[in-house]
Design a protein around this nucleic acid. Sequence first.
DNA 1: AACGTCACG
DNA 2: ACGTACGTGACGTTA
Length: 730
Amino acid sequence: MTVLYPKKGVSELQRTTPEFVQEKYGLSPDQYADYAALRGDPSDNLPGVPGVGEKTAAKWLQEYGNLESLLANMEGIKGKVGESLRAHVDAVRLNRRLTQLVRDVDLDVDVHDLARREPNSSAVSELFDLLQFKTMKARVPGLVNVDTQGEQGHLSLDVTLSAETLSTWIANHAAEVFALCLELDDRQAPVAVAMAVDSSVWAKPFSEMDAGEIESFWKFYSDPKARKSAHDGKAFMRELAAEHGVMEGLESDIAAAAYVLSPGSGAQSLEQLVGLELGTTLSAGESQQQSLFGDVVDVVRLSQSAVAVNRLRSVLTEKMKSLHLMDLCTDIEVPVVSILAKMESVGIAVDKSALQTLEEYFSNIAADVEMQAQAAAGRPFNLGSPKQIGELLFTERGLPTAKRTKTGFSTDVETLTFLAATTDDPIPVLLLRHRDVTKLRQTVVGLLASIAADGRIHTRFQQFVAATGRLSSTDPNLQNIPVRTAEGQRIRETFIVGDEYETLLTADYSQIELRIMAHLSGDEALQQAFKSGEDIHTTVACGVFGVTPDAVDADMRRRVKAMAYGLAYGLSAFGLSQQLNIDPRDAQVLMDTYFARFGKVRDFLAETVTKARELGYTQTMAGRRRYLPDLNSDSRQRREMAERMALNAPIQGTAADIVKLAMIAVAKDLEPMHSRLLLQVHDELVVEVAPGELDAVTAIVRAGMEHAVELSVPMDVNIGIGRTWHEAAH
DNA sequence: AACGTCACG
DNA sequence: ACGTACGTGACGTTA
């Protein structure tokens, strides 16, 4: 057997030349073109789209002769290889279409730098710009924006570090906005700081700062008159709050600016924004300095980050101004950053031993139910596996199938409840119970794992991920703690008031989204229903069914309530009928009757979609946008999805605006007090009340929430007090 | 990594 | 004929 190429002597580059490959695998020049396509030929391939392996490509070509014949016989290739091959061929087809597209617009793009065996960054960048691949462009590292390309595609640190002492430097730039970047170590202790103003940069590891400089820095940090900007300031503020308080004087946050400009993009890192907006990259610094603790501090990179924050602030500010988004960023998002930093830093106290007891309780039930289910099945099976449940119920036991999922028959609550009700098989009930109880156990286990050394749970509020303007909560998610069942409420009981504090207080808006609809639509009938102060769903039911309030029974009220919720989601008669378990025709009648009574609501919803289609985006009361290009999609499914989003976004988003404004008002009024905000759950605030402050805090929270904005309907707020979150919710 | 499922508003 | 209510995050299973 011939050694095709020695390990030494033939370069990597030579090994992939057409001639070499043709000889190695005995391929004709025509076959080589197809081979290249399969492999991911540079001219036929985009970075990020893989090709098949060298040997695989050659093998299938040897077998089928050419790509066309391979494609024609693809069905015959089974198993993993087939799937993988199909995926790659799809990619190849896509690439060929893209290549053709590029030729059509007469853009000479060579996306692969053959000589350097890497993507041709500027060409790919140009291509992505052309195709408006903004997200993908941000994802691919190192792409250079041709419009603003620097000499080497790196952010040049053309301002040398200031040698002045910190206090002198700060004093010399007192009126300017300081871009601040702080690096923390694994234990969240500050390691280095870099600050940039227009003309100058100051940066140092803390280990090299003398006592005076360190003192100057923290004084500056807490000085509200020292104007600052940062990227995701909350990231360091939450960690430093316990020791240094929340940073004062934050005037601009790049992450917030990027979010209001494009809320659909999720949280964008500084690196992504540098690539996207400045068309360059942060360099991995060459001069790395060793701190006292042995941590490697990249002061150059940190300094570049500060310079980048500074530049991004001007770029994004211009964009925000032209789109009238400046107020949203400055008056809502930036103040919320500091409030959340403090809330995260404070955390909420939990009763650890009560959680441990609950864990054991739920575990025992789960184990017991599992045994019963396996006994009933006559064999062991994994109760957590939808696949195994499907086999057991539908194949082995012959139960009727209903809903399908992508991968098989659905075994969700709806299905299992149906099976429990219509068959005498004992297993569906056991599975439902097992699902319930394991879900609760997992929640409890997650909470236990999140308890910090101070006995409290410090969730992270994500301010820049939700497309509608809402917050979200992670690590752990405290916005989805069970509340609807008695067992779930036992978990809420483990969230308790902290030592030295008097009570927890919860305050939530009632029907905020429906009130927003009443306001935005200008529907007098719905507004009147809210102004009457009576139970809203009962009042609306009166109008819809044309009866007196005492004639409204529970079922009528339930239907109207479901209808009201559905409205804000872009409901269909079908969806409503599913929700209410009634005939779709009856649901349609219900909708028609509703809209006959509240016509402006329907007009408002229709106009919202029409306007969004014209503009390309929706807007909330505070001007928050949500871009929905799919409103003009050819695909009906995508278009209708976008229409429902367009309908929902202004409502959900306005509610988010209002709650953020309320948080700002409440936080401001709580400043002189010891009580503090702990949590936000979309339309609810949780406050920890210090001894003696209950009456004042109640008034502050009520006023802050009720008057966050003035609508044409009252903003009713329910307030509850209690030792635990559960108690306080009543 | 994708999917199914389920918790919250 | 088709799919069918918005927005999130977390977990276990499976490919």
